[in-house]
């Protein structure tokens, strides 16, 4: 029970609020919405409680679903991302993951960038696959995933730079 927990609760609420109030109203070309709320899962502490992360991402997704009338697609996508996160860490950061010294909330390096892009792509692909729910939209699905992922990654990086703790 310390500041990490508080930070995460605050992040959970703030990111959801920002997503629903601001980013849900930002649409490009009629179908692309940036979804920076999944930054909560990306920025969750590396050595944090894994079951806690699973439950929190499920709640995060369910709340998004309530607000966008979409059944359980956000919940499923968030849950998948949360479950695959350790493997993504291993893929993007290699050995240093074992020492648990990663700080994502910092200057952008190639490793951090690849981690964020992979996470966003996995989340968006699951999301749009479940949203279309049929294979006939497959090309459309890929286009949606890629375009939305670009905008989400950009908004995620901007938010990371905005909330980055300043130390000098």
């Amino acid at each position: 029970m310390n500041s990490t927990l508080l930070t995460n609760i605050l992040r959970f609420v703030l990111l959801l609020a920002v997503q629903i109030l601001i980013f849900n109203n930002m649409t490009f070309l009629g179908f692309i919405i940036p979804l920076p709320y999944l930054l909560f899962i990306i920025l969750f502490p590396v050595n944090g409680n894994k079951s806690g992360l699973l439950v929190a991402s499920f709640l995060l997704g369910i709340i998004m679903d309530v607000f966008s009338n979409s059944g359980g697609i956000h919940a499923t996508a968030c849950l998948t991302l949360a479950y695959l996160r350790p493997s993504l860490f291993k893929f993007a950061f290699g050995v240093s993951y074992e020492y648990q010294t990663i700080k994502l909330n910092d200057v952008l390096t190639p490793e951090r960038f690849s981690f964020i892009s992979l996470a966003v792509l996995i989340h968006h692909f699951t999301l749009f696959l479940l949203e279309a729910f049929q294979i006939s939209f497959f090309l459309d699905l890929l286009i949606r995933t890629l375009l939305s992922a670009v905008f989400t990654i950009i908004s995620c990086i901007i938010i990371i730079y905005l909330i980055k703790p300043n130390k000098k």
């Binding site: 679903d65 359980g72 499923t76 849950l79």
Partner: peptide, 11 residues
Amino acid sequence: LLCVSLLLTIQ
């Protein structure tokens, strides 16, 4: 949790 969310989606 995946079962729950998939159930909601399919429903």
